[in-house]
Simulated scan of single mutants.
Amino acid sequence: MPDFRELWQYRDLLSLLTLRSIAVQYRQSVLGVAWAVVRPVVNVLIFTLIFGKAAGFAEGLDVPYPVFAFLGLVPWNFFASALAGTVQSVVGGQAMLTKVYFPRIVLPLSSMGVASVDLLVQAVLVVGLMVWYQILPSAAVFTLPAFLLLTAAAALAGGLWLTALNVKYRDIEHAVPFFVQAGMYLSPVIYPPSFIPEEWLALYYLNPMAGAIEGVRWSVLGTDPPQWGYVGVSVVATLVLLAGGLIYFTRTERTFADVV
């Protein structure tokens, strides 16, 4: 496992690299942070027309489908953005790897800053959408940080495995967008878990984002609570994946400077 005391000693470097990642992401961009607004809004419009109305996913929902879809898309976008940034973090920081020593895990951690900024911007959109549809958050909203933390842990867990592999096999970064796109349809972003047959639910919730997305929706909207046993499956899967990722990353980081 990483030396967390050493990581704490390098907290200033982590902060500096996080701010640099945010600045680089939006430098020389016409829309800048507005991209965090444009992309989910366009996606929700498409989802509402195609899946909500044409495919009938909106039938039987307790909330308007745009709200339902947006509250699935926000945590998913956070996960996808954090995962993509983490995967490219070590290769992107190769100039630092060969010049100075620092805990290598600082690189994937710092890359999650951009996803966090986008999340905050999209959270404002969620508030505006709920005001538009006159939906009040429930008392369960205080559990929202826990499910966002689960989302961040899932992104970091997958990112640690993939960024370590990406140093040696550069095919990984090309495959990630494909897996992210497929993963969105394997997660309850555009449809409720009730569409999944009961006998497949345990396998379905091995996907860490299944429990995270359901938890986010419930905490904000206060609808029927998710099946906590299956959410627990997602939590356990995330923790196992994260622990394995930390161990694998720590065991391979000493070879990064030679391979990259």
Rank of each mutant, 00 (worst) to 15 (best):
S116E: 07
M112S: 15
T250E: 15
A123Q: 09
E199T: 07
P226L: 03
Y191T: 00
F142W: 14
L49A: 14
G229A: 04
D3N: 00
F47P: 06
Y205E: 02
Y65A: 11
G215E: 01
P108F: 04
E253H: 03
L201S: 08
L109S: 10
V74F: 10
Q9K: 05
Y191V: 01
L136Y: 09
L201W: 05
Y26A: 01
G92V: 08
A157Y: 05
A155Y: 10
T163I: 11
P75Q: 15
G159N: 02
G113S: 05
A139S: 14
V216D: 02
Q25I: 04
G113Y: 07
V233Q: 10
G245H: 09
E253D: 04
V74N: 11
L160Y: 03
G211Q: 04
I190E: 10
A243V: 11
P192I: 04
S187Q: 00
L162S: 01
R20G: 03
P40R: 12
A152Y: 09
V91S: 14
P145I: 04
V176I: 05
P137T: 00
G93A: 08
G93M: 06
Y191D: 00
L239I: 07
M130F: 07
L144V: 02
V235N: 00
A115T: 09
E173K: 12
T151W: 05
T223S: 02
A157F: 06
A146R: 10
A36H: 05
L61H: 09
I172H: 08
A182S: 13
L160C: 00
G245E: 08
W8M: 06
F79R: 10
L239G: 09
V127N: 10
S29K: 01
K168D: 08
T86H: 07
N207T: 01
Q181S: 09
F68K: 08
A153V: 10
P2C: 06
A152G: 13
L239D: 06
A23W: 15
V37L: 15
W228C: 05
V189P: 02
T223D: 01
A84H: 13
I196Q: 05
Y65V: 04
A95D: 15
A140M: 09
F79H: 12
V121A: 14
Y204H: 01
A80M: 09
